[in-house]
Design a protein around this nucleic acid. Structure first.
Lengths: 233, 233
DNA sequence: ATACAGCAATGCTATAAAACACAAAATTAT
DNA sequence: ATAATTTTGTGTTTTATAGCATTGCTGTAT
């Protein structure tokens, strides 16, 4: 927990999209029930099969949503950056979580009880529309991902994962170094391949001059080609 | 178009879930804007990249929602039965369709303009909750499908497809013949495999006494085993 | 300095599934 | 009924990718 005086400021600055929707009365109710949590690298935020209780708002850091599959093989479903919301779907569907969430790096999150979110939606149709829109976007993305992961070949899947990282987290000030530093295993889990193949295919991309790799630092040299491989590979 | 006198009866009987939510005034607005369409076998209802205009309500028949992928390979994303709604996601996401819908067999559908649906949601929070719940369920299903299709082996994927057909359409009166008669190609498109492999694997299931196949008629003999293969295979 | 642990990289092998080719059967059209 | 077309079934070949083993590299603790 951080102290209350700074809390309201943090919230009002960061909750942005949702904040603009709420009335001052509703905002107070959020502030009164907003609890800040800090998570260490790789710490689980919630796990599959648990009952959903909170709307999570990522304030700082990076979060992955994933599903453990056959033989412990993990599939990363979505990545979150500040300020984004997650953890609400299962509550709305009236079922336990079907996926887990974990912090990729040291992260700060806010938790709002879903019971409160439900009340707020009941009283504010703009908030209802916010979630309808959010869920609809994610559903479209998920449907598209099904085809990408099942039909694209390994190069296409890796290229797609890299473009996803670009679109989600962007570049450092040099405009070419990816602003996320993932283990090869996580890159593999994002692209539905084994770690070996993620490494192998990254190497191919390096030798083709598409990227430069230095440990976990990935520089994108030929972004148009990367997107082309993602699209047609 | 069918004649108006029977129309209201059809709607009130069939729209069930949504109908119960609406006030009599709202119901009248739906009836006034509800247009019945008949579709032939394999006829497209809407196609990827088109702009969404209508909420579709399947009254009679069977509908598949699918996405065309690499090399024209089709992935079936969801199947609908009466009375279910679809076609609204893209409108809510404010984007063109990312998938297509087609009738599996001769089907009757009702179309309601999304502009009207939007107005109804604005005025009726229960309807908002209906869609939040619906979208949330589908998103969970889609995320689960990603892992099932990418990580399960061919037998597991086919077994899963068959159990999906059981759960969606059930059995004929003999309690073992599947109430849907799909082409092998469609079974393949549902299970992310080639037609050859769908045929081959169906044959394996036959020789293992799990199912009996007679043309497009599939009898499920050992449902528990089928579900077991679906879960662990 | 040394040992150790954890990643990253790479080659080799096994195998699941796709691609291809063709025949038989069933459906549809004439 | 006959021809034409589509769907189904099966065997063979090819390929992509998983699995495994090995090695080197880097950082950290002893």
């Amino acid at each position: 927990m951080i102290k209350k005086s700074t809390l309201e400021k943090v919230i009002s600055e960061d909750l942005a999209e949702i904040w603009a929707i709420l009335t001052s009365d509703e905002k107070r109710r959020v502030v009164d029930n907003f609890v800040i949590h800090n998570f260490k690298k790789n710490q689980i935020i919630y796990a599959e099969n648990e009952e959903p209780e909170f709307l999570w708002c990522l304030l700082k850091g990076k979060v992955k949503m994933f599903k453990d599959g056959i033989g412990g093989r993990q599939q990363i479903l979505r990545l979150y950056r500040p300020i984004q919301y997650f953890g609400y779907r299962a509550y709305f569907a009236k079922e336990p979580y079907v996926s887990s969430a974990a912090a990729f790096e040291i992260s700060t999150l806010g938790a709002i009880p879903m019971t409160l979110v439900k009340e707020l939606i009941d009283g504010n149709k703009n908030l209802a529309w916010f979630f309808i829109h959010e869920l609809s976007k994610h559903l479209g993305g998920s449907d598209t991902k099904i085809v990408n992961l099942t039909q694209k070949h390994i190069r296409g899947r890796l290229a797609e994962a890299l473009t996803l990282l670009i679109d989600n987290y962007g570049f450092e000030d040099d405009t070419e170094t990816l602003k996320i530093y993932m283990a090869r295993e996580d890159i593999a889990n994002l692209s539905n391949m084994t770690t070996s193949n993620a490494i192998r295919t990254l190497s191919s991309f390096v030798s083709e001059g598409i990227i430069i790799v230095d440990g976990r630092r990935i520089k994108v040299i030929n972004e148009p080609l990367l997107r082309k491989i993602s699209k047609f590979g």
